[in-house]
Design a protein around this nucleic acid. Structure first.
Length: 108
DNA sequence: GACATGACGATTT
DNA sequence: GAAATCGCCATGT
């Protein structure tokens, strides 16, 4: 529980608006760039057990569904994103720059 | 305690 | 412009 870092990541991910997506680096930067994007991904890895954390809204900086294989079943991530209004093509979000959500910019 | 790995990012070649 | 490499730090072995 000392790793409050994960909790921070969960909070930010939960704050991601529906139909938008945030990048690991953006969240990491919002948290103070602690450890960088990798730690965010690692936090999600621990969060995968928590359905309250819409990890499917967290993609890499390219808007690619990098963690699909970690979902159950694989592809659920893409389905959820498409259901929220995002267009996924080739495991990648189209109009990514338009649906991109930056916590440090939107939440300030 | 050290080595290897990981849902990434940025920089350099 | 694309590919390759290093860096970030925490977790697992």
């Amino acid at each position: 529980m000392d790793s409050n870092y994960f909790t921070d990541v969960y909070e930010v991910v939960k704050l991601v608006p529906k139909g938008r997506w945030a990048s690991y680096g953006a969240i990491a930067h919002y948290l103070g760039a602690k450890g960088g994007a990798r730690m965010v991904g690692w936090a999600m890895n621990s969060a995968h057990c928590d359905d309250s954390v819409p990890a499917h809204r967290v993609l890499n900086r390219n808007g690619e569904l990098t963690g699909q294989h970690h979902f159950k079943p694989p592809g659920k991530m893409q389905k959820l994103l498409e259901k929220e209004g995002l267009k996924i093509v080739n495991d990648r979000v189209t109009n990514a720059s338009e649906s991109f959500w930056d916590p440090s910019a939107e939440l300030m």
